[in-house]
Design a protein around this nucleic acid. Structure first.
Lengths: 163, 163
DNA sequence: ACTTGACGATAAGGTGCATTACATTCACTG
DNA sequence: CAGTGAATGTAATGCACCTTATCGTCAAGT
């Protein structure tokens, strides 16, 4: 993919390339992920939910949404699908009737080893394109970029209630 | 955001961080972009269509979809919205009755300077977090990663007809 | 107790993307 | 010139995400 607008300078050209590059790489990475996850009946979105549940089962939807950094609505729909496919179940919170506790089922629990194995395989496979030094540099640049973007106070989903 | 699975080694940990970092940065960048584009009634998807049309007006939907690397269906829907909002218009191809030529309207044409100015401002603002050397390194790493991912023959949208 | 406000979740509607299946139209080939 | 296959676009369906609006519930202040 190339920049549709002629660069006005080298620096601007580099920045544009990085913008597209980030989008491209992320998109391809997600496609590759999806491809592998589909084989076990999951998608990136559903896989992420299960991954977070595996660390702490029975979280509420609001807590999960915050950790996944998506809106409560989006998460609710994903949970709907996961419930329908039998990967999770909602249990009423005994003390707070507003809440659902989201629990893994044996089905998804048994999937965990394969899930993490598959994801680690994918990462190993594609990140072999870079040396350890480049990997470290990339990680640091991304962290810096993320911090800068967070500084720019971009509205992120579901933040009415101030986090 | 942190890794939901304990790292099994430093290298694995770094790879996982990069995976999340790429997704996070791309997501934040897109949010920031959307925020600014919304002010002129556009989104990232619609903005991209106009950007490519500005280089060559009157392209067919199939050609545009290929350049944007999205499916013909997805592009068709975006064109629907752009047509409804008056930013583009479809004209019948005089020689091939299957095709639509997608043309910019004065409305979107007048938007071009502001569009590119705004996007360049955003890039300047967030990439100032990195030095020129880091920027160059990042660009190179992303390019390498992209090449590697393309090598891994991931099915990308609408490729039945072999590009 | 009773209001008031915060919180958890859902409903409704819209954007963006994908796949599959299909109707047209074209272009090539026998 | 028919006949087949490829190309262009659409319809239908599903996933993932968003915003705004609402409903029930809890918690706190008066």
């Amino acid at each position: 993919m190339s920049d549709p607008q002629a660069a006005t300078s080298d620096e601007a050209g580099a920045r544009i390339e990085i913008g597209y590059g980030l989008a491209d790489v992320t998109h391809l990475l997600r496609m590759a992920f999806d491809q592998r996850m589909r084989k076990m009946g999951l998608t990136t979105a559903t896989w992420r939910v299960i991954a977070y549940l595996s660390r702490q089962d029975g979280q509420t939807q609001a807590a999960l949404a915050q950790r996944l950094e998506i809106s409560r609505v989006a998460l609710g729909e994903t949970i709907d699908r996961l419930e329908k496919s039998g990967h999770v179940e909602r249990r009423a919170d005994p003390v707070d009737r507003r809440k659902w506790q989201v629990h893994m089922t044996p089905l998804s629990h048994d999937l965990l080893p394969l899930m993490f194995e598959t994801s680690e395989e994918l990462r190993a496979e594609c990140f072999q394109a870079l040396s350890d030094a480049e990997l470290a540099q990339l990680q640091s640049s991304l962290a810096r970029l993320k911090a800068r973007l967070l500084d720019m106070k971009i509205e992120t989903p579901d933040e009415e209630s101030g986090q």
